[in-house]
Every structure is written in C-alpha cells, then in structure tokens.
Design a protein around this nucleic acid. Structure first.
Lengths: 255, 255
DNA sequence: AGTAGATCTGAACAGCGTTCACCGTACACC
DNA sequence: GGTGTACGGTGAACGCTGTTCAGATCTACT
C-alpha cells in the first residue's frame, strides 16, 4: 500500500496541504476487504474489520458501497479481471477446457475462502461474460451440439466453484489444529477408511488408499477429466451422426 | 406434533400432574429448526428463532446441542435417514447412478436452503457412509477401475450439492419479487442473452435459447448425463484393456 | 470568501451466538 | 416421608454483527 509511505518534503512544499488522507473508493475498500479476508477468513470478514483496516469509521464505507453483499460482489468480480481465455483450437479443445478449469481453480485459490464468496456470486454478470463466451466458443468449435455446448460452461464453472468451496471448508476445519499438514490429514483419513468394518463397508475399506487423494489437485484433475470425457462422447456422437446418420456405439441414452 | 393435543381427562386423573411440558431433545430441536428453515430460510435460521418455535428460552437449547454448528450438522444428518441405495445391477449401472443423483437432489429440495447446510456438512460422517458404500459398489460392479470408482462418488455428491446450492441461491434471489415464476425468470434471461451485442458475444447470443433451461431439472439431468458418459469411457477403457491390452480409440489422456 | 455538496464521524438500533448465575422441579436415598 | 442432589430451564448479559442517521468536517466551485 503506497499511501502508507511518508509524503516527500519537496512534494509537500509544492502542492501545499497535500491530502494526507487518500480518498475512499470502492476499489480501495475491496483491497482492504481482501486483506482482511486473507488474514482472518470469511467468517471474520466484517464491515467493521474492513473499516478498521482502512483506518476509517464503519459508516464511511456505506457512501461507496451500498451493503456488504455489494462489497462481496465487487470482490467476486475482481477475480475475473485480466482473465484471457485463448482462441479456440479444435485440435486441443480438451487441453483448453482443462486449462480453463485449472485457471478458474487457481484464481479461487488466490484468496482464502474465496470460493465461499464465489458460489453466491451472479454467474451472468456482464463482467464475467467474456470468459463464458470464449469457453462456449471452444465447446462449439470442438463440435459439441449447441444445447450441450451452452450448458457445459455452466457445468464446468459450477464444478470448479464446488471443488474450491469444499477445499475451503476443509482448510477452515483443520487450520487451527496444532500440527496441520495435508499429508497428515490425508493419512489419518485413509486410516479411517481402512479401519471401517469390512463386513459392512467392504468397498470403502478396500478402496481406502484411493478414497482420499494425496493432493487436492488429483481429485480435481480427475473430476475435470471425467467431465471432458463425457463431453467428448457428445462430440463423437455428433460427428458420426453427421457423417452416416448412425450413432457411436456405446454412448448412453439421455433419459 | 401429537403433543399439541389436549391431555385426555381420564388419563390426567390416573397419572396425576402429568408432565405438560414435553422434554427437550436434540430430535425436537432439529424438528423445530426445520420448521423455521422452511418458513424463514437459511439467513433467518437463528437459535433464537428455533427457541421461540419451541416456546423455550434460547439458552435451554445449549444443554442438548453444543452450538449452532452442531445443530446444522444434526439437520444435515437427518437428510440421509432412510435412504436405501439398491443392490448393484451391472446392466443398469447408468440408471442406478442417475437415480442416486436424483434422489440426492430430491432430498436436498425437501427443505428450503437445505443445500446451504449440506455443502458445509462433513461428507464422511458415519451416518452417511452406507449410501457412499453402496454407490461405490455400483461403480465397481460396473467395471470402473478402483481409483476412479473411489472418487466418482465424491464427484457425484459434490455435483448434486453444488447444483442444489445454486438452485437455492437462485430461489432466494427471486423469491421476494412480486410475480415470481420460473418460466418468467427463464424468459427474461433468454432475452438478456439474445440482446447481447453479437459482435462481442456471437456464441452466447446465438445460443440464448439453450443458455437457460426451461426447468431446473434439464440442467441437472444433462450434467449428470455428462458425468455418467465420462465414467462410461473409463469402463470401456478398462474392458478393452483387460481383453486385448489395447485401449478404446478416442478416450483422452489424463494429464 | 463564502457557500453548497460531498464525505466522514459517532452513536444508536436490532439482531446474532454463546455464557453464566440462578431457580424450580423430580428423582434417589436414607 | 422427608431431604438432598442433580439436572434442565430461565433471564440477563457480553461482544459481535449489518445498517441508519444526525451532525461535524472538509472540498471545490462561484
């Protein structure tokens, strides 16, 4: 925060009585809110904390931001700033989709508990439409039928949000434990599954090593892979239907 | 609630001074919490409201329930009571998985904002393990490789939660509007997409009719269908690998 | 220079989760 | 049958929350 620096004397003599008090703006309020969020977490993110962070009375915030909900939405929109989705490359659509999902997750992970805010954000705000447009472009140029292409973006971003959300809950739950490390938690959970009575839980106990991933990324990557494969089956179906009027053999009937 | 009935005179004469005050239990507190939730929604669900609903002081709740978080968890666990997942039928695994997802969504829809509570619930509590065990059984008997089978249940329940969650947010956002109907909202959103500038949003505007489903179910069903197809590709892959050592042609590489 | 308008302050309100000293009743025991 | 103990419910309180509002203060334009 550059405004914390002392004002240089030569500058002060020039424009006399320089405004030592930087004017409050929505932008600065969002900045401060992010500082509080990262330090304290979502549950402790309050208007009073944000105001304190800015060295300002609580009520001052309300001239720039109409409510806490609006502040949260501004924070949500900030997430998407500068997100450039590449031009579609039909040869690489799977990778492009996976990268999109990964970028989304990474952005949510940039701030603690950000997913908690993101999940209640309006997914069709004008500010976030460009990315959705590009993603749908990728889907269409990959050969997905229009109804599927339209909804695949929705599915993917919901999935990203949900995984980040669960990650956030998890971390909150274990952050305060004295010796927190992901591998520790992961091991204790694998043990939990392994110790389940095999007569009542034959599969869960047998699959214990796989029930909890060593890293959170594995879990996410596999989920994305499954979705991409599901989408791919629609691409194949559309392709063979377009060529021969038939359909690819084992594609599964929509119910 | 049968305790609301007047106590019969003959019974009253028999065991004199019958306890007119029904004893408080976690069970009754959860009942009352559900009443408040359904009537007022998650944001208004407070310990004080629950206590008022029971005609009792707030502090009385804390002898039976250690915190609001515990109450929410008890509500969450109640959701799964009496959920019987059928025996695996490898011929019908797709349908069984779809039905599982549908049952999960339906249960979340039974109470207003229930998904808000469900998403922060512990997904591995002993009370919810039986359903997960059965689901994994279905996956394994369908021929999914173990690592995928173990995580597919996680993916599916996350998806169900997330969709129900978004539905809940949506409904909260429009519940108070004077003439609320899903078709109305859906139409106005389709119009919103159609009116987007076609030079900047060629795909979103072109796909406007598909961007918002007529019913919430379509959206969910397609998402589940995509996931099931993705899982199916792993089944095929495992099958052909088991027979011939090859792999099914266009399956996509995990990264 | 003076005034109009934007902006910030401090106090207040209603509601929240949670705690605690107190009280009444019911049951167990002598 | 009387007495004591332990449990369950009460009401008040604490510290926190989002939001509002009258008044003070500071900015900028005429």
């Amino acid at each position: 925060m550059s405004e914390e620096l002392p004002t240089p004397p030569w500058d002060r003599s020039r424009r006399r009585a320089a405004p030592v008090r930087v004017p409050l703006t929505p932008e600065r309020i969002v900045d401060a809110a992010y500082v509080v969020l990262d330090r304290e977490g979502y549950d402790k993110l309050s208007m009073r904390q944000v105001a304190t962070e800015l060295g300002v009375a609580v009520s001052a915030l309300y001239t720039h931001v109409s409510s806490k909900d609006e502040l949260l939405e501004l924070m949500y929109l900030r997430l998407f700033r500068g997100w450039e989705v590449p031009d579609p490359d039909p040869e690489r659509w799977r990778e492009q989709v996976a990268e999109f999902a990964r970028e989304g997750l990474d952005r949510l992970r940039r701030h603690r508990d950000m997913a908690r805010i993101s999940m209640v954000g309006v997914p069709f705000s004008p500010e976030v439409l460009p990315q959705m447009e590009r993603l749908v472009t990728i889907f269409r140029s990959a050969g997905l039928p229009d109804p599927v292409a339209a909804r695949a973006g929705d599915l993917l971003s919901t999935l990203v949000d949900a995984f980040a959300f669960e990650e956030s809950i998890w971390q909150d739950r274990y952050r305060d434990s004295p010796d927190f490390s992901w591998t520790k938690v992961s091991e204790s959970f694998q043990q939990y599954f392994k110790d389940l009575p095999p007569d009542r839980f034959p599969n869960l106990s047998a699959l214990a090593p796989h029930m909890i991933s060593d890293s959170q990324d594995d879990r996410f990557d596999l989920a994305v892979e499954i979705v991409i494969r599901g989408l791919a089956s629609f691409v194949e179906e559309a392709a063979t239907a377009g060529e021969s009027g038939g359909r690819s053999a084992p594609a599964g009937e929509p119910r």
